[in-house]
Design a protein around this nucleic acid. Sequence first.
DNA 1: AGCTTATGTCAGTGATGTTGACATTCCAAG
DNA 2: CTTGGAATGTCAACATCACTGACATAAGCT
Lengths: 170, 170
Amino acid sequence: MSDGRSGQFNRGESLLFLTDEQLRQGIEAMFFAYRGFTADPDRILAKLAYGRAHHRAIHFINRAPGTTVNNLLSILGVTKQSLNRVLRALIEDGLVESRVGTADKRERHLFLTEAGKTLEAELSNAQRARMRAAYKEAGPEAVQGFRKVLEAMMDADMRRAYTKLRETSS
Amino acid sequence: MSDGRSGQFNRGESLLFLTDEQLRQGIEAMFFAYRGFTADPDRILAKLAYGRAHHRAIHFINRAPGTTVNNLLSILGVTKQSLNRVLRALIEDGLVESRVGTADKRERHLFLTEAGKTLEAELSNAQRARMRAAYKEAGPEAVQGFRKVLEAMMDADMRRAYTKLRETSS
DNA sequence: AGCTTATGTCAGTGATGTTGACATTCCAAG
DNA sequence: CTTGGAATGTCAACATCACTGACATAAGCT
């Protein structure tokens, strides 16, 4: 790691000791934090006999109403058969509506019903509350860094999906 | 998007637009990043017919050699039945050794065998490589914020486990 | 001796993922 | 136009893994 500076570190690198130990702490922080991240929605979902797969489907249908099953598949990264079971349950329970495509009748466009939107809001509110609290506790500068590292940790195709979602929502 | 930044915030909060939209982006970043975070180990584990549960067990046994089953349970947050299935497999495959406690013979103390350490290193290296790359891409200041937000997102008991691990490792 | 603790095990259930087979629809080559 | 392939989505069977509940065993504690 020859940075060829006169001093041992330049200003930018001096805070970044990438020892295995530091990295492992980051790994463990990620593990524990993700548990907290999903804890609140999990509690709500458990009462309804739903799991995280249902939450993810509801989240992204809400995010991009009218999305097709195929589109959802690529975002969620599961097989279509897996997603189908989840969608079937949500449709039967009246949370999601599936409309045959007009241009291409093979496609199904997915929408949340009023009941679906209600559950989505309940899940979102719980998760946002925790995120808001964490942001507030960590402070504004920390939030920038948080987002930056997370984005750098994604696979290329995930980052594409992520930035695409950011665009369409604005 | 009502961000109304005319004079509504004081200096400290001015960088922190806690709109629902901003929070949702954080949520999605967390979702996608966690997939990237586990992708590399998952590939290695799949070849051995192991899952993430095995990885977590191996990780924390390596982190705290001699830990008891009960201790591991509280860190991992799974049921003993679940953990037992995992441990049984790892012991049968010669990756983990279970020694009866000397002071309290009810306890089992867990250690990685040489083969276990080899697999742990393989998994760790893959995950650290990604973490290192993400840290490098995001920059030093970002790393501080990343860690700070993650810690703030944990449940209280998780944060206790996390900081305890940090102490014992130093 | 009786109560509690630590661990392990068996049985049943549920969520989630997989592969395979199949129906429907679209599109393009002949 | 017809036919065959590709795309989209659905249904069925099976595997994995987590959970709850019940119980067994051994050891420590009062």
